[in-house]
Simulated scan of single mutants.
Amino acid sequence: MPEGDAVLRTARRLDASLAGAPLAVADLRWGHVDGERLHCACTLAVVAVGKHLLHRLDNGLTLHTHLRMDGRWQTLPVSAVTPAQRRAPGLRALLATQTTAALGWHLGLVEIVRTRDEADVVGHLGPDLLGGDWNEALALSNLMSAPERPIAEALLDQRNLAGLGTIFTSEPLFMQQIHPWTRVGALPADRIRALVRRGQELLQVSMTYGHPCSTGHRREPMYVFGRKGRPCRRCGTTLRHITVGEPPRERVLTYCSRCQPEA
């Protein structure tokens, strides 16, 4: 699933492509969602809130989308959109001005809400690590409100803080030498704060790089994520997978049993 940095990059790309121009095409292929409600409306802004995309229009409506596991938005000139793309079963949304098209592929959610009611769809989220209104104190309070919860599960819960996925949960936990199953209550507040700040730092670095990166090396960008069965870059121990969370929200993380010993 794309993480906060990828969603923010997507929002900025959509905003640069569509803002300020009316939609000549608004074809939404998601149940009974009526794209005609957006036709001829002018895009005011496309913003990211955690992993959610809010496409605000001047008619008081917002197109709310979520990429989930496999979704992505593609932008290209209208003249480059092919008939095959228009017919593709994976196309969930097609938005276009007179010059630029945005194609939403395999989106996990598509809905229209009134802009004034956006809180109904994103109000449950905790502070956004990449948001302009980031509130560290509130995020820490949210995390520490359930001391028996495993720290990895707490970090992945978007109600505590928004923007972290398996990449930027696995990597900060490794860098701060914390086992994913460590109970929140077993960690001093300063270690939790340092962990959150590390995650935020990695998201910001990845915004600069244009793709996820923890090590600072483009060819070998990760310490643990996606490296199960390979040697730890720090100690050489074979990296393992671990499952955190309860069904259906369980997630798989990679960790080093030596660098991240169980508490």
Results as ranks from 00 to 15, higher is better:
Asp5Gly: 03
Val7Glu: 01
Arg9Pro: 11
Ala11Pro: 04
Arg13Met: 08
Ala16Arg: 11
Ala19His: 13
Gly20Trp: 15
Pro22Lys: 06
Pro22Arg: 02
Val25Arg: 06
Ala26Arg: 11
Asp27Asn: 12
Leu28Lys: 11
Arg29Ala: 06
Trp30His: 06
His32Glu: 14
Val33Tyr: 03
Val33Glu: 10
Gly35Tyr: 09
Glu36Asn: 15
Arg37Asn: 11
His39Gly: 13
Leu44Gly: 07
Val46Gly: 13
Val49Ile: 10
Lys51His: 09
Lys51Leu: 14
His52Gly: 04
Leu54Phe: 09
Leu57His: 07
Leu57Pro: 01
Asn59Met: 02
Gly60Asn: 02
Leu61Thr: 15
Leu63Met: 05
Leu63Tyr: 06
Thr65Arg: 05
His66Thr: 12
Met69Tyr: 08
Arg72Thr: 10
Trp73Ile: 12
Gln74Pro: 00
Gln74Ile: 01
Gln74Met: 08
Pro77Trp: 08
Val81Gln: 08
Pro83Cys: 12
Arg86Pro: 08
Arg87Pro: 13
Ala88Tyr: 02
Ala88Glu: 05
Leu91Trp: 03
Thr97Asp: 04
Thr97Met: 11
Thr99Trp: 12
Thr99Ser: 12
Ala102Glu: 00
Gly108Ser: 04
Gly108Ile: 11
Arg116Cys: 04
Arg116Ile: 00
Asp117Tyr: 13
Val121Phe: 12
Val122Trp: 13
Asn135Ile: 00
Glu136Trp: 01
Leu140Ser: 03
Ala146Lys: 15
Ala146Pro: 08
Pro147Leu: 06
Pro147Arg: 05
Arg149Leu: 00
Pro150Ser: 12
Leu156Lys: 10
Arg159Glu: 11
Leu164Pro: 02
Gly165Tyr: 04
Thr166Ala: 13
Ile167Arg: 01
Gln176Met: 06
His179Arg: 02
Thr182His: 05
Thr182Glu: 05
Arg183Lys: 15
Asp190Phe: 15
Arg193Asn: 09
Arg193Ser: 12
Arg197Glu: 04
Gln200Lys: 02
Glu201His: 12
Leu202His: 10
Val205Lys: 05
Ser206Lys: 06
Pro212Tyr: 07
Ser214Met: 12
Thr215Gly: 14
His217Cys: 14
Glu220Lys: 15
Met222Phe: 11
Gly226Arg: 14
Arg227Met: 02
Lys228Leu: 09
Arg234Lys: 04
Arg234Asn: 00
Thr237Pro: 00
Thr237Gln: 06
Thr243Pro: 01
Thr243Val: 15
Thr243Met: 00
Gly245Asn: 06
Gly245Thr: 00
Pro247Cys: 07
Leu253Thr: 14
Leu253Val: 14
Pro261Asn: 06
